[in-house]
Write a protein that binds this DNA or RNA. Structure first.
Lengths: 353, 353
DNA sequence: CTGTTAGCGCGTTCAA
DNA sequence: TTGAACGCGCTAACAG
């Protein structure tokens, strides 16, 4: 357990070779005789050598170009948080000559995704962070990257079959299960449940929602098997239409006072409630979008489940960097915590700092 | 929004002085004429200069000695987590010549704390991280440090009146309020509440418990004003005694099925329940000690409130470093998130990585 | 008061 | 195949 910090010079001295040779061995870029190689390796085995990161950062001339394939976003939405995490990683890694750029696509728009994938294939990246969308394009992209030995990581959603360096995201099934467990605390016999769903069922991102639903239903069927579950499809954009439909829905289902929104747009329901001066007994949703958080504070939304989007972006980039730049091993899967937020603890919540 | 990365040389060039002078200005260690000072400051105001941390790390010769005054601990307990965070910070900061050492005391033991404070005053530290215990000694220690201009930060518990560089911890009142809100979900009329309390009321750490209790009672009196609340004092060490007393307690109070432990020793109650093959309808406690987590998983404990001890240690050290080494401004207060853990999300929980 | 200079540890030439 | 030499950006010591 020596505490001494060894430098390349130390190793060179001990092995009886020069620093240059040690460096060649460490980065095995050949041009080293068998004899020197063995001498250096012997020394390396004996000591606990950790290169000085600061010297590496300072000296490195190699530029790394990371590209992120993520949905485009507006201020305060989910992918905005992801990009904040990415930006944070970018700042930390800038001294290592890592530069990060983006290729954005429209979420759930197949044409847009396809185009983005193509753009990515044409650009030359050293590593890629992907928020996957459509399966087929993703797999073909993964294939292409694998052939070029370009490491790639997935965030948010794991595309089975495309073996990425790393997947970072939440266990959707369990987060659905927890949503149910939290929500049903307030349940009293006779009340009905509403699932507010998105209207684009062809969307691959719906797979995630469905896993959440499965988890949710698992809890319901275990603990509250008799509960009546209604479904209401929210229009992604047409608020006026939603409003009419919701009015009608709540008029015809007066007992439907427990709501779940499986995507991150619980604000659609929350805003409706606020505007029409209604309340549900309990409404739960996902993700801490600004709009969602406001409604949590004002009470229309009772619970939010957080999945640390910024941390996902941050860790995704860091993982690629660990692998590519620092040559450190990387765990293939990292599940994010399932954070439970209510009016009372939302103010103390943060992902960083 | 220029993206250019400026170096000291750039600044020197722009200001028409030498790099040495710029360095003197940046670290205001005098020996600079009014004229040069102004020229450099003008340039600094115009550009967005961030020194290259790697160069700093590589070049710095100054040694920094940080000392942590914290309770001694055993594997898996609360202060062990804190120290893990500190160690993580230590690893990150080692290249900046920051070394971290500890002075430990026995929690809630006034003599031990006094002695530790004295040891600290005699040792020469460049910065100090304090987990405060007894008020009087803490204030006098703070006074001493202030006179020597040694920065100090508090974690876990804020000692009012001793103006530290930073306080990092949880809002105890709110975390008590949340504990009540969570616990009472399962409440059914007629059931009784038990507060399991520690037996050393003279302990200053009890102040924190009391704030939690206040928050808890605030919720109870707002939402369940009629609930009967019982108290049970746990012996810190004498398990056999506790066991007898608990048997008697539960025998005489069959409706007392809702429990709260305001300190981190919910495992005392949980283990009793497990051993005597009992269950309470709901039991909530604080802190993710190994023992607590096990009981959460096996069901004797239903909820745990987490307060990120490791992050507290980590951020405490980092704050001192930001202030002392990097000369960056530091926010005086940082509240930790109030994490809600249940059997279902405990496996995904982590403070780092 | 100011400019110059010598490293910090490592990556990368370039001669030998 | 190797070693020596330079520079990354910054700090600190030194000479002017």
């Amino acid at each position: 357990m020596e505490n001494k910090i060894y430098t390349i010079k130390d190793i060179a001295h001990m092995a009886g070779v020069s620093a240059g040779t040690v460096d060649r061995v460490l980065h095995d870029r050949g041009e080293v005789s068998e004899a020197s190689l063995r001498k250096v390796q012997t020394v390396l085995k004996e000591i606990d050598y950790h290169p000085n990161m600061f010297a590496i950062g300072l000296a490195a001339k190699k530029k790394y170009c990371f590209i992120c394939l993520i949905p485009s976003y507006t201020e305060g939405d989910y992918w905005h948080s992801v990009s904040e995490g990415i930006e944070r990683a970018a700042r930390e890694l800038r001294p290592f000559n890592v530069t990060i750029s983006y290729i954005k696509y429209t979420h759930a728009d197949e044409e847009s995704y396809k185009e983005a994938c193509n753009t990515l294939q044409e650009s030359k990246a050293d590593a890629v962070l992907i928020a996957p969308n459509f399966r087929e394009q993703t797999l073909s992209l993964a294939q292409h990257l694998k052939e070029l030995a370009i490491p790639y990581a997935f965030i948010d959603f794991n595309m089975e079959g495309a073996e990425a360096l790393k997947y970072i995201g939440q266990d959707s099934y369990m987060s659905g299960y927890i949503a149910a467990k939290i929500l049903m605390r307030d349940y009293k016999a006779g009340q009905e449940l509403v699932f507010f769903l998105g209207n684009n069922r062809d969307n691959p991102a719906e797979i995630q929602m469905e896993r959440r639903m499965d988890g949710f239903m698992k809890y319901i069927s275990d603990e509250y098997p008799g509960v009546k579950v209604l479904e209401f499809v929210l229009n992604k954009t047409d608020t006026a239409c939603d409003r009419r439909m919701l009015n009608e829905f709540f008029a015809t289902h007066p007992k439907a006072t427990f709501g779940v929104v499986f995507n991150s747009r619980v604000y659609q329901v929350g805003n409706y409630l606020r505007e029409s001066n209604k309340r549900m007994d309990a409404l739960i949703g996902y993700d801490l979008l600004q709009k969602n958080v406001e409604l949590l504070k004002s009470g229309e939304v009772k619970y939010l489940i957080g999945q640390r989007p910024a941390l996902q972006g941050y860790q995704g980039i860091k993982a690629l960097c660990e692998h590519l730049v620092f040559k450190n091993p990387v765990m293939p899967v990292k599940y994010m915590p399932i954070d439970i937020l209510m009016k009372e603890n939302i103010d103390f919540y943060f992902e960083f700092e």
